[in-house]
């Protein structure tokens, strides 16, 4: 790991100023579960670290109003345990507690979790692998390589690395937004716009501008949340990344679907909203058959690779099961 210098501001304003002063080569450290990990792998080589764990104002959790508001430094475990979230947005709660381990969830912040970086081994493990995300222009070892875990959606000729997070997948199903603060003030970004598809420059993973800090996440407290689930299929029963996951939510009126939300994890370069599949549900009575048909729509445009084609069939069934679990709660 490269050596770095360390700063620990005590307020958001100070953090923004510190981050700006650090300039290029400066990284924010929150929970550290992604950044410190990648620094140990020499994938991240910051010269300066701004430890923002002292920003108490970013740790709030408020689920009492029309909007769920989470400070960016709220820890995954605390948010997962929020009683209203567990009752009214089970998909959000499940997306949190089904991720990582309780140790890591005690450490990891929500903001940092949104910015979690891919698990692509060719990205993480450095030389000799080609990786346009880690080393722009070097190529992509995954496209012709072991790509069981790689994306079926949102890939490019430059990169098919999967976005590994769970919480962002659930958030986009509920039209969540993030507020960010930077040298030029605050702005709001829909979570669905936060991550960039790789295109020709996969190293640019988000639309955050230099110096910007995620300060909070807001979720409209929509009634659709109650009938929701985050259904995560893994290679082991716990402590593993998604092979395929689906955040699904439905609101029923008189037995037919009035509102439907569907987002996919483990299969795309960014958190992936399946809007066409959602629309196909509106006005239908949700059965195992219609749920499966929705799953097929969700995976209709999948671009498969040598080792991940099974996820089309699996994914359709994961969507099916997720919708049935969700409707059972609606």
């Amino acid at each position: 790991m490269q050596s770095f210098s360390y700063a620990r501001p005590a307020s958001l304003d100070s953090a923004i100023a510190t981050f700006a002063e650090g300039g290029e080569g400066t990284r924010l450290l929150a929970g550290g579960t992604t950044l410190y990990d990648l620094m140990k792998l020499d994938v991240e080589r910051p010269e300066r670290i701004v430890d923002i764990n002292g920003l108490a104002e970013l740790s709030t959790i408020d689920t009492s109003g029309d909007e769920l508001v989470f400070g960016a430094l709220a820890r995954m475990s605390d948010v997962a345990a929020d009683p209203r979230l567990a009752d009214e947005f089970p998909a959000l709660s499940e997306a949190l507690w089904k991720a990582a381990s309780q140790q890591l969830r005690n450490m990891a912040s929500l903001g940092g979790n949104l910015l979690q970086q891919t698990r692509c081994a060719y990205f993480r493990h450095g030389e000799p692998f080609a990786c346009n995300k880690r080393s722009p222009g070097s190529g992509c070892s995954a496209i012709e390589g072991l790509n069981r875990g790689h994306a079926l959606f949102g890939g490019s000729d430059a990169c098919i690395a999967t976005y590994p997070g769970d919480f962002a997948v659930a958030l986009i199903a509920f039209d969540a937004e993030v507020d960010v603060a930077g040298p030029d003030g605050e702005r709001t970004i829909p979570v669905s716009d936060l991550h960039r598809q790789p295109g020709d420059n996969p190293e640019a993973e988000t639309v955050l501008m230099p110096g910007e800090i995620i300060i909070r996440i807001r979720v409209p407290a929509d009634a659709v949340g109650r009938g929701s689930t985050y259904h995560k299929i893994r290679d082991r029963e716990s402590y593993a990344f998604a092979v395929v996951s689906a955040a699904a939510a439905v609101r029923l009126e008189a037995g037919v679907v009035a509102d439907a939300r569907l987002a996919l994890g483990g299969v795309a370069t960014v958190p992936w909203r399946a809007r066409e599949a959602e629309h196909s549900l509106i006005g239908t009575a949700l059965t195992a058959e219609t749920a499966r048909a929705v799953g097929e729509i969700a995976f209709a445009d999948a671009v498969t690779r040598e080792h991940n084609a099974f996820k089309v069939e699996l994914g359709a069934n994961v969507v099916r099961d997720a919708l049935l679990i969700a409707s059972g709660r609606a």
């Binding site: 050596s3 700063a7 005590a10 307020s11 100023a17 510190t18 701004v50």
Partner: peptide, 11 residues
């Protein structure tokens, strides 16, 4: 409170 914190090589 708004001033940048110092970057230190050792802590």
């Amino acid at each position: 409170p708004a001033a940048p914190a110092a970057f230190l090589p050792r802590v």
